[in-house]
Simulated scan of single mutants.
Amino acid sequence: MAWVSFVIVWLFQIAIFWQGIERIKHFLNWAGPLVYVVMLVLMVIVWYQAEVS
């Protein structure tokens, strides 16, 4: 299953690369802040699980 995930991410990266530098800039503009959103969500999940345990 790990290989399937690797290939999916690899194909996604190639697709963005082929579309040019402008597409990469656009992707980074929304992917950068999304990293912080995911970190906050994971922090809330871990915090909740620590409280329940």
Rank of each mutant, 00 (worst) to 15 (best):
F6Y: 09
P33Q: 01
W18T: 12
I21T: 07
I14A: 01
I8C: 04
H26Y: 11
M43L: 15
Y48A: 11
W47S: 13
W3S: 13
I45T: 02
A50K: 10
Y48W: 06
I8W: 04
W3N: 11
M39H: 08
F27K: 00
Y36C: 10
I21F: 07
F6E: 03
E22L: 15
L34W: 11
I24G: 03
Y36D: 09
W47Y: 14
H26W: 12
W10A: 11
W10E: 08
I14P: 00
L42D: 02
W18Q: 12
M43R: 11
I16T: 01
V44W: 05
M43A: 15
G32D: 09
V4K: 04
W18G: 07
F17S: 06
L34Y: 08
K25C: 07
V38F: 04
I8M: 05
N29T: 14
I24Q: 02
V38N: 00
M39A: 14
A50D: 10
L42I: 10
H26D: 10
L11M: 11
Q49R: 11
V4L: 09
K25E: 08
V35W: 03
N29A: 14
W18L: 13
M39S: 09
I8H: 00
M39C: 12
M43F: 15
P33K: 00
W47L: 15
Q49N: 08
V35T: 10
L28T: 04
A15D: 08
H26A: 14
M1D: 09
H26P: 04
A31C: 04
I16F: 00
I24L: 02
I45P: 01
V35E: 03
V35I: 13
F27D: 02
N29D: 12
W18I: 13
I16G: 04
Q19E: 05
M1T: 12
L28D: 02
M1P: 10
